[in-house]
Each structure stands twice: as structure tokens, then as C-alpha cells.
């Protein structure tokens, strides 16, 4: 009895799974008729949901969200080929968007709105992808122990005065890999390797934990400076955990390389898939996300910077001050990612 029931349950499940996975054969036909878009996204910030809901309300276009790891999503789109129901791909770093483009998974979008809303270095030159939010990888420092005069560039972090004072997460994380990629692009492979080795010399401890853990380490007195993404500081300060709040308030933000190329930034971005069944709606969606009003909410919710220059950053971000950003084409970050990983391994940055 139980067995039969289970059998039915299982067949039902299998059927439902397969159905969702099966290419929508009619997708081409009701391209314009059914109002919806399918979004493959790596972002898993709950705040996004509200924005999608708002888009649905305003335009009547339903947003179907498929959340997964960016690598998985790319693989999925690859295997689905021209049968893919994906209209849009969202990632949390530029490198993967570049990878998707190189695999031929995205298509060119010509939109004046987007060209005007998003600065050139934050989108693909051929219009395959567009940045939606911006984050900087900055130096935060112990307010009590460090003077801003002592800080200048990423490269200067190898100086002996920082010996045993630098807290930074593992090389396995994409944000560090992108940072090193930008240094390779700007300073060349040799110098980049020397830099990495120098930073390793100055580690306060072997890399452990995530960005927020580095700041907690400053609070605990294990180190004096840390390298983190800006939005993590926002998360700390607004955390529910009292220790995290203390940690966030114990440090200040410093934007490196203001005198030369600018601070390293990265984007969370979006692209229209090559075989998108609802291209028009998809473009509408991107334009929606790039609009001033939405930018302000979208970015603020996760303590990120808007890409649209006319959108104002939140008060918290403003309090950190304006900064010059490295206008290196972000596609470079993707191209040099593997080299960065190799260098990290060579200098034994755990």
C-alpha cells in the first residue's frame, strides 16, 4: 500500500521535474503573446524579490526566477542550446558574464536607454552584458590604530610596516581573484606575483573565513587592516548581531589608488541570452533595473553602488565619500582569472 503510494508520488515528481526541464517547444510561437520572462540568476538577495514583484505590477510581465550557481547556469544554457527558455542571465561578478559571452550564450542589445544609463566601462563594448550594481574592494582599517596617511595603494601593502597586520580571505574566492586579475592587467604578471607574495608575507594570520570575518578579526585585535567588498561593511553595520555591529563600527573605509588608476571595482551584471524567447520583454526588464528609481532601491538594499550615474547612492555609502574607480574593462577580469588563480597557488596564498 505504502509502496504504491510512494511510486505514484515519485512518478509525479519525476514528471514535474522533466516538464520544467524540457525545452518549451511552443516558446517560439507564443513569444510575444505570453507576457513573461525567465531569469537565470546567481544573485540570491531576498531584496531582489520585491523589485521583481514591482516590475510585474507595473508592466504585467511575469518574472520566472531560476536561482543557481553562475557556473551551473552557464552550463545549463550551454546544454539547452537554442531550446533554452532563459531570457536573461544575472551574475555577481564580471568574469562569468565574460565567460558566458565567450561561449556564445548572450546576444547584442542595442538600447539607447542602457547606453545612457550605464557608463561604458561598466558594460560590454558589444552590448552583450550590462552592470547593474557596483561594489569596490577596499581597505578597511582599525580606526584607533591606523592613520589614513599611511595608506595609499594596493601595491603599497607589501611594505614591511604592514607586517603581520593584513587580514584578507582565501584566494579561493572570486573577489580576490578579480582583484589580482586587475593587478595583473595593470602591473603585469611579474609584478602581480611579487605583490601577491608580498601580501602573503604581511598576513596577520593564514586566510580564514569570509570578508566579514576579516573585520571581526580587526575587532579582536588580530590585525589592523583588511581588504573587503564595500557591501559587507554595510551588512556588518546593519547586522542583528551585536558583535558584527561593533566590528563594523570599529573600522573606516579607505579607497586605494586614488592617485593613480583608481580603486578596483566589480559589478553584478545581466545579459540577454542568445535564444531568448522574449527578447523585447527582457530588454524592458534590464532598462527597468537600470532606471534611476529602481537603481536606488536595487543597489541600496544590498549596500551596493548603483551603476546609473544619476542614481544617488544611499546615505551610508555617501558617508564613505566619493572615490575614483579603476576603469579597466571588466572583461579583462574574466580573461585573467585563471592566471590569477595560478599566481595565488604559486605564492601559497591559501
Amino acid at each position: 500500500m505504502l509502496r504504491q503510494f510512494m511510486f505514484i508520488v515519485f512518478i509525479a515528481l519525476l514528471a514535474s521535474c522533466s516538464n520544467e526541464g524540457q525545452p518549451k517547444a511552443n516558446a517560439q510561437e507564443d513569444k510575444q503573446s505570453d507576457q513573461s520572462i525567465t531569469l537565470y540568476t546567481h544573485r540570491h538577495y531576498d531584496t531582489d524579490k520585491a523589485i521583481f514583484a514591482q516590475f510585474e505590477e507595473e508592466t504585467g510581465i511575469k518574472v520566472n526566477v531560476v536561482k543557481a550557481n553562475a557556473d551551473e547556469l552557464i552550463q545549463k544554457m550551454e546544454s539547452e542550446g537554442d531550446q533554452s527558455p532563459a531570457d536573461l542571465l544575472i551574475t555577481v561578478d564580471a568574469g562569468r558574464l565574460v565567460r558566458a559571452k565567450n561561449k556564445g550564450l548572450l546576444q547584442t542589445i542595442n538600447s539607447d536607454i542602457l547606453t545612457q544609463s550605464i557608463p561604458a566601462h561598466l558594460r560590454d563594448t558589444e552590448g552583450h552584458w550590462f552592470g547593474l550594481t557596483k561594489r569596490a574592494r577596499v581597505i578597511v582599517y582599525d580606526k584607533d590604530k591606523v592613520n589614513t596617511e599611511d595608506l595609499s595603494t594596493y601595491e603599497a601593502l607589501t611594505e614591511s610596516k604592514w607586517n603581520n597586520k593584513i587580514l584578507i580571505r582565501s584566494s579561493g574566492n572570486i573577489y580576490n581573484q578579480s582583484l589580482l586579475a586587475s593587478i595583473i592587467a595593470n602591473d603585469g604578471k611579474e609584478k602581480a606575483k611579487e605583490w601577491a607574495a608580498g601580501v602573503v608575507e604581511n598576513f596577520a594570520r593564514s586566510p580564514k573565513g569570509n570578508d566579514r570575518d576579516q573585520v571581526k578579526g580587526i575587532l579582536a585585535g588580530e590585525g589592523e587592516i583588511a581588504i573587503i567588498n564595500t557591501y559587507y561593511l554595510g551588512k556588518l553595520i546593519n547586522s542583528k548581531d551585536s558583535t558584527e555591529i561593533k566590528a563594523g563600527n570599529a573600522v573606516s573605509v579607505f579607497f586605494p589608488n586614488q592617485e593613480d588608476r583608481g580603486t578596483h571595482i566589480n559589478i553584478s551584471g545581466i545579459g540577454v541570452s542568445r535564444y531568448a524567447p522574449h527578447k523585447e520583454n527582457a530588454v524592458k526588464f534590464i532598462e527597468y533595473l537600470a532606471s534611476k528609481e529602481v537603481q536606488e532601491i536595487f543597489a541600496e538594499a544590498n549596500y551596493e553602488y548603483p551603476v546609473n550615474p544619476s542614481a544617488a547612492p544611499s546615505d551610508l555609502l555617501n558617508s564613505w565619500g566619493e572615490f575614483k574607480e579603476d576603469k579597466l574593462p571588466l572583461s579583462k577580469l574574466g580573461e585573467l582569472n585563471k592566471e590569477a588563480v595560478i599566481i595565488f597557488d604559486e605564492v601559497k596564498w591559501q
Partner: peptide
Amino acid sequence: INFFSDTFHLKIGYLFYGSSV
């Protein structure tokens, strides 16, 4: 998947990536 694609021109990728099979 490649085999089916090359020999029978069948795209069976979804069976692998889209279902729990």
C-alpha cells in the same frame, strides 16, 4: 550527449541537466 547530438541530432541535454533522473 555529444554522441546523441552527433549521431542522431538529438538534443538530450535537458534530460541530464533539467531533470532529477
